[in-house]
Amino acid sequence: GGVGALSGSYVAPKAVWLPAMKAKGLEISGTFSRQAGSISMDLSLTNKALQVMSDFAIQFNRNSFGLAPAAPLQINAPLGPNQTVDISLPLNTIGSVMKMDPLNNLQVAVKNNIDVFYFSTVYPLHVLFVDDGKMERQMFLATWKDIPNENEAQFQIKDCPLGAEAVSSKLQGSHVFTIAKRNVEGQDMLYQSLKLTNGIWVLAELRIQPGNPSFTLSLKCRAPEVCPHVYQAYETILKN
């Protein structure tokens, strides 16, 4: 992990997605990143079998946001026993769309010369936050008013010892943009927007009270099923 520090967008450490015992000795760990506007699946493939592995390929099942490999999985030399290769697979979002449960679930098939293996993982929604997600202020006010309060989702972000300025700049590094900030009765109210790769806008109000490490995040979106995942992204960005 930690690669994201260069571009600002947080990258989680790699996790094991496919254990060797389930894939005839092939172990895959990975994470997702977004750098300079491009999404990548960063993979480590380890050969824990006694034979050489070759002829690798990867395929995704249809998924909620059309994530797909933008290039073939390129592993130039056969992978010998106990060898690991690190690959960054570029992704695009122009693949086939099918709503998954959970929304950010991704089913992956990997083949090599031995067999075909399947696993599923979930991606953090912030890799889908585009860099032109700063909503025009008039549009924000109109949209906020237009989406009924019943469709507002509210979450608590606990144990976050940051002030409003630090919160704004940390979130902006991951393409969550602060449009306005107000101080009412001592508490900071941040109005923020972000846009997903498929054009869905999310509007946010983040309430920060001085001396209280627990924030209130209110989200409004015309596709409310994304809200819990956006909240999860806020947690991830703010706490790393």
Binding site: R137, R182, V184, E185
Partner: peptide, 20 residues
């Protein structure tokens, strides 16, 4: 912050959200 005439609108929103 930009002076686009909307500063006041955001103030009203924040106020209304704090004291509904």
């Amino acid at each position: 912050e930009m002076d686009d005439g909307l500063d006041e609108a955001f103030s009203r929103l924040a106020q209304a959200r704090t004291n509904p």
